[in-house]
Amino acid sequence: MEVKIKYELEFQINSSPQLLYQYISTPSGLSEWFADNVNSRGEFFTFIWNDSEEKARVASKKSGEKIKFRWIDENDVDTDYFFELRILEDEITKDVSLMVIDYAEEDEVAEATLLWENQISDLKHVIGSV
């Protein structure tokens, strides 16, 4: 398996940090824009896309600010990879943006970036931040 590289993306979102946090940290919020369906049992989340299912564990979170999901393998063992969604708010302008930290194989970063752009577009549509 190829080693994945870390990349970061930032998206401007017209929303309050509190509302945005609900959409990035709860199964119901995530299933509206990130995956077809999301289930959780405690700190374990299952993300479902079509016939594909991936599991992750909440590695860390700070209410209203960020959540980090670490991918786990079929034996429920943490992998080296995670994705983190971090809400940034400019102290002066109060502009809100969402920082995405994720991993992809080097030759797939452009494709992964495009996927995130589409998903964030869906998120903006869902929360009325067009």
Rank of each mutant, 00 (worst) to 15 (best):
V3L: 12
P17G: 14
Y23M: 00
I127M: 05
S40K: 04
E84A: 15
S63L: 12
L123A: 05
E32Q: 14
I120R: 00
R70A: 14
L30T: 01
K124R: 08
K4G: 06
L19R: 04
F47D: 05
N14V: 07
L20V: 05
S25W: 00
V58M: 01
V3M: 15
S52F: 10
V109Q: 08
T46Q: 14
R86M: 08
I92R: 14
K68W: 02
E105N: 11
K94R: 14
N118A: 12
F34D: 00
R41S: 15
S25R: 03
K66A: 12
I87A: 12
D95I: 05
S31P: 03
K94A: 13
L98N: 09
D80E: 14
Y21H: 07
F45Y: 11
R57A: 12
T79L: 04
L85P: 10
E105W: 02
D73A: 00
P17D: 13
S25Q: 05
I92C: 06
S40L: 02
S31K: 08
L9P: 10
Y81P: 02
F44G: 00
L19K: 10
I67G: 05
S97L: 08
D73N: 10
V77A: 11
V130N: 13
F69Y: 14
V3T: 13
S97V: 07
Q22T: 14
T26R: 11
R57Y: 11
I72R: 05
E84I: 02
K68I: 09
F11Y: 14
S63T: 14
L85V: 06
D78V: 04
Y23L: 02
L114E: 15
I24V: 10
Y103H: 09
V100R: 05
T26L: 00
G29K: 05
P17Q: 03
D80A: 13
L30H: 01
K61M: 09
G29H: 06
I5N: 12
E65L: 14
A56H: 08
D78G: 15
G42Y: 04
W33N: 02
D102G: 01
E54H: 07
I5P: 10
S15K: 01
G64T: 08
I92Q: 09
L88W: 11
D90H: 13
V126H: 06
I67N: 04
W71A: 11
N50G: 04
F69M: 09
I24L: 02
Y81E: 07
W49D: 10
F82R: 01
S28Q: 12
H125L: 09
I48N: 13
F34T: 04
M1H: 07
W116R: 04
Q18M: 09
S40N: 15
D107H: 15
L88G: 11
E32G: 03
E10C: 03
I48T: 12
V126M: 07
V58T: 03
E105D: 10
V100W: 01
S15M: 01
F11V: 06
I67S: 02
A110R: 08
S60R: 12
Q12Y: 10
